[in-house]
Structures are given as C-alpha cells and as structure tokens.
Amino acid sequence: MKNRHKRIALILGGVAALSVATILVLNAFQSNLVFFFTPTQVSVGEAPKERIFRVGGMVQAGSVQRQNDGLTVSFVITDTAETIPVIYTGILPDLFREGKGVVAQGRLDPSGVFRAQEVLAKHDENYMPPEAQHALDQAARNNPATRP
C-alpha cells in the first residue's frame, strides 16, 4: 500500500470515529434535554405526551393535600390563567409553600394529572425560577382579570 493510500485510510478512519462520537454526544444530549412549560401551554396540548418535561408556576392556595402514607402530596400549579394538578411522592423541599413559586419535573398521565418525579422550590423571598416568573408575567398580560 502506498503512503498516499495509508494517509487517505487514516483520514477516513478519523472522520468516521469523529462522526460516531458526535452522534453519541448528540443522542445523549437529546435524551437528557428537559423542556419547561406553563400550565397554559400544558392545557392547550403543547407539552409532550410521552416525554419528561417541567411545569412551573405558583402553588395554588388551599390545594396542597397530603396522603396518609406521609410521602404522597397532591397540589395544583397555576400561572393565574390555567391550572394543572400534580401528584408527587417523596420529600418536598423545605421552602415548598402554597402561594410560592415551584417547578415540577415529570410526565403527564392520560387523565391529565402531572406525575412529578422532582419538585423544586424557590431559594429565598426574592427568588422565583426565571421560567416560572416569565410564565406568570405572560399569563397576567393575557388574562384581563389579573391586570391592575
């Protein structure tokens, strides 16, 4: 085999290896990508049906109900325009409260209930997840009943 042929084979092998590595990285990135949706977007069907996603907004006052097992909690997330019921089994963050911002990650079941695998709460009095704050601001602009 000539040096020229060896060089071409080496270059083609390197390109093939780089292509395989790129495909594997992009596949891993896609499978770990989690999108954020508001309750309004979920209610109009923009959220994926078979994928994990995040939904965020405010925990509706009076909606938190704890089950007898001590771990299962149901509550409602609202963006002031729409609501979505959530069921979570696990330990809630210490800062989880009614009327405060929350982001839940999980799947929507066929009955329209969001089955959360993880619940994230605000960090301090001034913090709300940016996506949740944007969703509340957008809902307030679109809902005449919440305008001042």
Score class of each variant (00 low, 15 high):
M1R: 07
K2R: 07
K2H: 08
K2D: 13
N3V: 02
N3E: 12
R4T: 11
H5S: 03
H5N: 04
H5A: 03
K6L: 15
R7W: 05
R7A: 07
I8N: 01
A9M: 02
L10D: 11
L10V: 09
I11S: 02
A16K: 10
S19L: 11
V20P: 04
T22S: 15
I23R: 07
L24H: 13
V25G: 04
N27V: 11
A28S: 13
A28W: 11
F29M: 08
F29K: 11
F29N: 09
F29A: 13
Q30M: 06
Q30F: 08
Q30H: 10
S31H: 13
V34Q: 08
F36K: 00
F37R: 00
P39K: 02
T40N: 06
T40G: 02
T40K: 03
S43I: 05
V44R: 15
V44F: 14
E46G: 04
A47I: 03
P48M: 06
K49W: 03
K49Q: 14
R51T: 07
V55R: 01
G56A: 01
G56C: 01
G57W: 01
M58L: 15
Q60C: 03
A61T: 12
V64C: 02
Q65C: 05
R66F: 07
Q67G: 01
D69L: 07
G70R: 09
G70L: 10
L71Y: 14
T72M: 08
T72E: 10
F75C: 05
T78W: 09
T78Y: 10
E82N: 14
T83A: 05
T83W: 01
P85D: 14
V86R: 02
V86N: 02
V86I: 15
Y88M: 05
T89M: 11
L95D: 14
E98R: 00
E98D: 04
G99N: 06
G101W: 00
G101D: 00
G101I: 00
V102I: 13
Q105I: 08
Q105R: 05
G106Y: 07
R107H: 10
R107C: 08
L108G: 10
P110K: 12
P110I: 09
F114P: 10
R115F: 00
Q117L: 10
E118K: 02
A121V: 12
K122T: 02
H123W: 09
D124N: 15
E125G: 10
E125R: 14
N126F: 13
N126Q: 09
Y127K: 02
P129R: 05
P129L: 06
P130K: 09
P130W: 09
P130A: 11
E131W: 02
A132H: 00
H134I: 11
A135Q: 01
D137V: 12
D137L: 15
D137F: 11
N142C: 00
N142L: 06
N143H: 13
P144R: 06
A145R: 15
T146G: 04
P148E: 08
P148A: 12
